[in-house]
Measured scan of single mutants.
Amino acid sequence: MLDDRARMEAAKKEKVEQILAEFQLQEEDLKKVMRRMQKEMDRGLRLETHEEASVKMLPTYVRSTPEGSEVGDFLSLDLGGTNFRVMLVKVGEGEEGQWSVKTKHQMYSIPEDAMTGTAEMLFDYISECISDFLDKHQMKHKKLPLGFTFSFPVRHEDIDKGILLNWTKGFKASGAEGNNVVGLLRDAIKRRGDFEMDVVAMVNDTVATMISCYYEDHQCEVGMIVGTGCNACYMEEMQNVELVEGDEGRMCVNTEWGAFGDSGELDEFLLEYDRLVDESSANPGQQLYEKLIGGKYMGELVRLVLLRLVDENLLFHGEASEQLRTRGAFETRFVSQVESDTGDRKQIYNILSTLGLRPSTTDCDIVRRACESVSTRAAHMCSAGLAGVINRMRESRSEDVMRITVGVDGSVYKLHPSFKERFHASVRRLTPSCEITFIESEEGSGRGAALVSAVACKKACMLGQ
Rank of each mutant, 00 (worst) to 15 (best):
residue 273 Y to D: 08
residue 442 E to V: 05
residue 84 F to G: 02
residue 455 V to A: 11
residue 30 L to M: 04
residue 195 F to S: 06
residue 457 C to A: 14
residue 333 R to A: 14
residue 115 M to W: 11
residue 402 M to I: 09
residue 326 T to H: 03
residue 104 K to R: 05
residue 323 Q to C: 10
residue 40 E to G: 03
residue 405 T to V: 01
residue 112 E to K: 15
residue 419 F to L: 05
residue 159 I to P: 13
residue 271 L to K: 05
residue 150 F to G: 09
residue 443 E to V: 07
residue 376 T to S: 08
residue 427 V to R: 00
residue 156 H to N: 14
residue 207 V to L: 10
residue 225 I to S: 02
residue 391 N to M: 08
residue 80 G to F: 12
residue 150 F to Y: 10
residue 286 Q to C: 13
residue 199 V to A: 06
residue 124 D to T: 07
residue 276 L to C: 09
residue 8 M to K: 13
residue 204 N to E: 14
residue 322 E to P: 08
residue 91 V to E: 02
residue 278 D to L: 11
residue 89 V to L: 05
residue 241 V to A: 07
residue 143 K to A: 05
residue 186 R to W: 03
residue 353 S to C: 05
residue 60 T to I: 00
residue 210 M to S: 01
residue 280 S to H: 15
residue 40 E to M: 04
residue 141 H to E: 08
residue 446 G to C: 11
residue 456 A to Q: 05
residue 247 D to P: 01
residue 263 S to P: 02
residue 268 E to Q: 02
residue 202 M to G: 03
residue 249 G to R: 01
residue 85 R to N: 08
residue 301 L to W: 04
residue 429 R to P: 14
residue 397 R to S: 07
residue 95 E to H: 12
residue 96 E to C: 13
residue 392 R to G: 08
residue 225 I to G: 02
residue 124 D to Q: 10
residue 209 T to F: 04
residue 293 I to P: 01
residue 250 R to S: 06
residue 161 K to V: 13
residue 23 F to I: 04
residue 265 E to W: 03
residue 131 S to F: 08
residue 317 H to E: 15
residue 192 R to V: 03
residue 99 W to F: 05
residue 67 E to R: 09
residue 175 G to K: 05
residue 79 L to M: 09
residue 288 L to K: 15
residue 23 F to H: 03
residue 414 K to D: 15
residue 414 K to T: 12
residue 283 N to F: 12
residue 299 G to H: 05
residue 110 I to W: 07
residue 278 D to C: 12
residue 360 S to W: 08
residue 203 V to A: 02
residue 211 I to H: 00
residue 404 I to R: 10
residue 219 Q to K: 15
residue 365 D to V: 03
residue 267 D to R: 03
residue 278 D to V: 06
residue 236 E to A: 02
residue 258 G to A: 15
residue 260 F to S: 03
residue 199 V to G: 04
residue 396 S to N: 15
residue 311 D to G: 10
residue 360 S to C: 04
residue 280 S to P: 11
residue 119 A to L: 12
residue 404 I to F: 02
residue 393 M to E: 03
residue 148 F to A: 13
residue 270 L to R: 08
residue 25 L to V: 10
